[in-house]
């Protein structure tokens, strides 16, 4: 009962895409087969006629107006030049050429990808913490869970402000702590690359809570007998983690990987607040979204802004497609 209930979140959107084939503790094999079978049957003509469409129509209309149409419009605007007070004029590829020539995009892309890679590092950390929290008989487990989840429900702006104080070179607690060991003051948010690491640390810290909830649900669906059997066979804790926990968590891990990549590519608020005015590395520490913001809303160049937005959407699309392809391949290999 509890297992079935706990199962659901772990097989959330990622597994849901593959249909209802997820079959509890037996894990991946079943999931994979269920996926392919479901896919085929979906293509068969629907005996219910147009009725299902009628039922999804309200949602579909909403999506079309508030999601699809703006995307199409943005794509169109990326080929236009905007007056400050409106009025788009078609200029062909000019924005795109400007964008590729400016040299700002490659750097912003590198920064964004580096941040995304750091967020992915958060997943193994989350697995570790989640399995600690999930140990049978752990006291105050609920309290720890709340503690780890707190950052997820806090305002990103507030998080960035508080971390900004922690990283402050003059009175920040981090430098004071390092000072005890005689380490000289580090300019966390105003040294090139170091600032990116600082932002990555905050990113990982904020994502832990959500990761742990998802992974915790997945962990609870793993049958304790597996671990018992492994222990009888003499498997170490580490061996159990690698051979049982990680493989059986793979739907959750995949789900988190996809989400972390999308989330990482959309980095904005941490940079916006932690890398302020008068910071010598501000232009070196832009992300794709912050570049978009500057172009569209500060420089009043909405056309180029739209081009950045579309470029970012394409990159996220490709990355996500690659992730799904890899996952499907792995599922088939099993």
């Amino acid at each position: 009962m509890t297992q079935a209930a706990a199962e659901r979140p772990s097989s959330g959107p990622a597994a849901g895409r593959r249909g209802r084939g997820t079959s509890g503790p037996t894990g991946r094999g079943g999931t994979g087969r269920g996926g392919t079978g479901q896919g085929r049957s979906r293509r068969a003509p629907n005996p219910d006629g147009a009725w299902p469409w009628l039922f999804v129509l309200p949602t579909l209309i909403g999506l079309a107006i508030f999601y699809f149409w703006p995307v199409i419009q943005t794509a169109y605007y990326s080929f236009t030049s905007w007056g400050v007070f409106g009025g788009a004029e078609f200029v062909g590829l000019e924005n795109w050429v400007d964008l590729l020539q400016s040299g700002e995009v490659p750097r912003a892309l590198i920064n964004t990808l580096a941040y995304t890679a750091m967020l992915l590092l958060g997943i193994p950390i989350s697995i570790y913490i989640a399995s600690l929290l999930n140990r049978p008989g752990l006291r105050f487990a609920a309290f720890y869970r709340v503690l780890y989840f707190a950052p997820f429900v806090s305002m990103p702006a507030a998080i960035a402000l508080v971390w900004g104080m922690i990283f402050n070179s003059q009175y920040g607690i981090l430098n004071q702590f390092l000072g005890i060991f005689g380490i000289p003051a580090v300019f966390w948010t105003s040294t090139e690359w170091v600032a990116l690491i600082a932002i990555g640390i905050v990113g990982i810290w904020s994502s832990l809570g959500f990761n742990i909830i998802i992974l915790g649900a997945g962990l609870r669906s793993i049958s304790p007998e597996m671990y018992e059997a492994a222990r009888i066979d003499g498997a170490s804790n580490w061996r159990q983690l690698i051979s049982i926990t990680v493989p059986l968590l793979s739907p959750s891990i995949f789900f988190l990987t996809v989400l972390s990549v999308i989330h990482g590519m959309e980095l904005f608020d941490l940079i916006f607040i932690m890398i302020g005015e008068s910071n010598p590395i501000r232009s070196d520490t832009q992300s794709m979204v912050s570049l978009f913001y500057r172009q569209a809303f500060i420089s009043n160049d909405k056309g180029t802004g739209a081009a950045i937005a579309i470029l970012l959407m394409l990159i996220i699309g490709v990355l996500t497609a690659v992730q799904f392809a890899v996952q499907r391949r792995r599922a088939r290999l099993d």
Binding site: F167, N168, S169, Q170, F187, T189, S190, T191, S278
Partner: peptide, 9 residues
């Protein structure tokens, strides 16, 4: 340094 004033105005 400008790094110092970037942290503390």
């Amino acid at each position: 340094s400008i790094q110092t004033t970037a942290d503390t105005s």
